[in-house]
Simulated assay, not measured.
Amino acid sequence: MNDAQPPLCIVCHHDLFTDEWDRYCCRPCQQRIDADLAALAGPVTWQGTGRERRLVSGLFAALPTELEPSSRSNGPRVSGSKSAPIPARMGPLSDSANGGLVNDLEEWVRDWEHRGYATRCRAVRPQYRMDQAVATLRFNLDTAVRQHEAINAFAEDIRTIRSTCEAMIIGARPPRDLSAVCPCGTRIVFHLDSQMRHCKGCGTDYGHKALIELALATRAA
């Protein structure tokens, strides 16, 4: 009789089925990662009605509509004002620009490329880069869940990016970024509800408590 304990999904920490033992995460978690990626790219698509209405794709494409402070106003926009223009809302602007959320996704594409199962795109416009990065990550996701020991960090990053976009679109406050510096010199960005982060410099995994302690040590230094 085989009393060996089944391995755990490193994302949800539930037992893997026997036919999932060649994977780091279970199929439901893989499906959630894929859904989070799919929600970021493409044209804006709504699903449902009333309070159940939500964006199911095009979250990144929807961010530019949030740039103007009056974008939530129900009244008409008035042109010809003699007053100075009000600056754009900086949150969506920075997150939809080249160095924002697109760059966060492309870091994972570069990581996967170094492992031999992804190829970076050469697009220039942020929306094209987002669409290409999402397409690349979705296409190679099945390989990554079997070969990438930090697929849980990837899952959390993608969930955070989706939540950040949704929060700005519906007017909620996005999660606050915190950071810590690993002893190897790599900066790790996380949030107060982050359960784990993987250092891309040395490969060390930090749990929630370790992240907080590392952030405090970084601040003290």
Rank of each mutant, 00 (worst) to 15 (best):
C26G: 04
R219N: 03
I161H: 02
L67A: 13
L137Q: 09
D36R: 02
A118V: 07
R89L: 10
I10K: 13
C25G: 03
A172E: 15
D142P: 08
N74W: 07
R89Y: 04
R53M: 05
A62N: 14
T186C: 02
L55Q: 14
S81Q: 04
A88V: 12
C165D: 03
L214I: 09
T204F: 01
D111K: 13
R146K: 06
T49Y: 02
G185D: 09
P175K: 09
P64Q: 11
F154I: 13
A217G: 06
S79W: 05
H198M: 11
E107H: 12
R187K: 05
G58I: 06
R219I: 04
L55F: 13
G207I: 01
G201L: 07
H148F: 09
I158C: 12
S81C: 02
S57W: 01
R120D: 11
S94R: 05
V11I: 08
H148P: 00
F190N: 08
M130Y: 09
P85W: 03
K209Q: 15
G80T: 13
V56K: 03
Y128P: 02
D111A: 15
D177Y: 00
E52R: 02
H13W: 13
P6W: 00
R146A: 02
G75V: 09
C182A: 15
I158P: 08
S79T: 09
H198R: 13
A97N: 12
N152E: 15
A215F: 05
Q132A: 15
C12K: 05
W21R: 13
N140Q: 10
P7W: 12
Y206M: 00
E213A: 06
S70N: 10
K209H: 15
R27K: 12
W112L: 07
R122K: 09
A155Y: 13
C184I: 08
N152K: 12
R159C: 14
A172V: 09
G100R: 00
A220L: 13
D157P: 04
F60N: 02
M130C: 14
D205S: 03
